[in-house]
Deep mutational scan, measured.
Amino acid sequence: NQASVVANQLIPINVALTLVMMRSEVVTPVGIPAEDIPRLVSMQVNRAVPLGTTLMPDMVKGYA
């Protein structure tokens, strides 16, 4: 099963993503693939993302 990107903490809106904010985990439904974590660094989410939430492509500005 493919690992997805999961919030490692509350990720506020309009804050640049850092490695420490994200972890990889096998979850259902599948979200952004874990291998895209380096690409996500410095991008921003378009809504607050609670701890443990799977990041979906539509949550990250400029990802999709």
Rank of each mutant, 00 (worst) to 15 (best):
V26Y: 14
A48S: 15
I13T: 14
L17T: 00
R47Q: 12
V60R: 00
Q44Y: 15
L17K: 00
V6S: 02
T18G: 05
D36I: 09
G52F: 04
D36R: 06
M21E: 00
Q9T: 13
L19H: 06
Y63M: 05
P50N: 09
I11V: 07
P33A: 08
I37E: 01
T53N: 08
D58L: 10
K61I: 14
P50K: 09
G31M: 02
V20D: 10
T53Q: 15
A16P: 12
M43L: 13
P57W: 09
T28F: 10
K61A: 12
T18L: 06
T54H: 02
G31W: 02
M56N: 05
V26N: 15
V30I: 13
T28M: 11
G62Q: 11
T54K: 04
P12R: 07
L40M: 07
V15L: 06
N14A: 09
V41D: 02
L51P: 10
T28V: 13
P38L: 10
M59K: 00
T53D: 10
M56C: 05
P33G: 05
R23Q: 04
R39E: 05
R47G: 05
P29M: 04
A64P: 09
E25G: 11
N8C: 08
P33S: 08
L51Q: 12
V27Y: 03
L17G: 00
M43A: 12
P38M: 10
V26G: 04
S24N: 07
P50A: 09
G62M: 08
A48D: 15
G62S: 09
V30F: 14
D36C: 08
A7Q: 01
I13M: 13
P29Y: 03
V5D: 01
M22K: 00
Q2A: 09
L40H: 00
V26R: 05
V45R: 00
L19Q: 09
Q44K: 14
M22A: 00
V15T: 15
V6R: 03
V15C: 06
D58F: 15
I37R: 08
E25P: 01
I32F: 02
V41A: 05
Q2E: 15
V49W: 03
L40K: 00
T28S: 13
S42R: 10
E35Q: 13
L19Y: 13
T28C: 14
P38I: 09
V41T: 07
P50Y: 10
V30P: 13
K61M: 13
T28H: 09
I13S: 12
V45I: 10
N14V: 03
V49K: 02
A3P: 10
E25C: 08
L40W: 03
Q2F: 14
L55P: 02
A16I: 10
L55M: 15
Q2G: 15
R39W: 07
D58V: 10
P57R: 08
P38N: 13
I37Y: 02
A48E: 14
V26H: 10
G52D: 09
I32G: 01
I37F: 03
G62W: 10
V60Y: 02
R39N: 14
V30C: 10
L10Q: 12
I37H: 01
Y63A: 04
N8I: 05
A34G: 08
A48F: 14
L19S: 07
P38F: 11
L19W: 12
I11A: 01
V49D: 02
G62D: 13
I13N: 12
L17W: 02
V30Y: 14
V6H: 01
P12E: 12
V26C: 08
V45P: 03
N14H: 14
L10A: 11
P12N: 14
Y63K: 04
E35A: 11
M59T: 05
I37V: 06
M43E: 04
M22N: 00
A3H: 10
A3V: 08
V26P: 08
T54N: 00
R23F: 03
D58E: 13
V30N: 13
V49A: 05
A7R: 02
K61C: 15
T54A: 05
P57I: 05
V6K: 03
L51K: 12
Q2M: 13
L10F: 14
M22H: 00
R23C: 04
Q44G: 05
V26T: 12
V15M: 15
V27M: 07
G52Q: 04
T28L: 08
V20T: 14
I11S: 01
M21W: 03
I13Y: 15
M43Y: 12
L19A: 08
T28N: 12
T54W: 03
V15K: 12
E25Y: 05
A48G: 07
P29Q: 05
M56R: 11
M56G: 05
V27Q: 04
V20G: 12
E25T: 07
L10K: 13
N1I: 15
K61Q: 11
G52T: 02
M21N: 05
P50R: 08
V5P: 01
P38T: 13
G31A: 03
A64M: 11
E35V: 06
G52Y: 04
L19F: 14
G62R: 06
R39C: 14
P50W: 05
M43Q: 08
Q2W: 11
M21H: 07
A48M: 08
P57Y: 10
V45F: 03
N14F: 07
D58A: 10
M21R: 01
A48P: 13
N8S: 12
Y63S: 04
V60M: 06
L51A: 11
E25A: 14
Y63Q: 04
I13A: 10
V30G: 09
V15I: 15
V26L: 10
M43H: 11
V49Y: 02
L19E: 07
V15Y: 15
T18K: 07
P12K: 09
G52N: 15
P33I: 10
K61D: 09
N46T: 12
M59I: 05
E35G: 11
V15W: 14
Q44N: 11
I32E: 00
T54D: 01
L19K: 07
S24Y: 07
R39A: 10
D58C: 13
T53L: 11
S24K: 12
M59N: 05
P29R: 04
P33L: 07
V5W: 03
N1S: 15
V5T: 07
V26S: 13
K61Y: 09
Q9F: 07
R23S: 06
V27D: 01
A34F: 05
N46I: 12
Q44A: 13
V30E: 15
V49L: 11
D36W: 08
M22Q: 00
P29V: 06
V5L: 03
V20A: 14
S4A: 03
I37C: 05
P50C: 07
Q44W: 12
M43P: 00
M59V: 06
S4W: 02
P57H: 09
S4E: 01
L40A: 00
N46L: 15
Q44D: 04
V41S: 02
A34C: 08
N14K: 06
V20C: 13
L55W: 02
V20L: 13
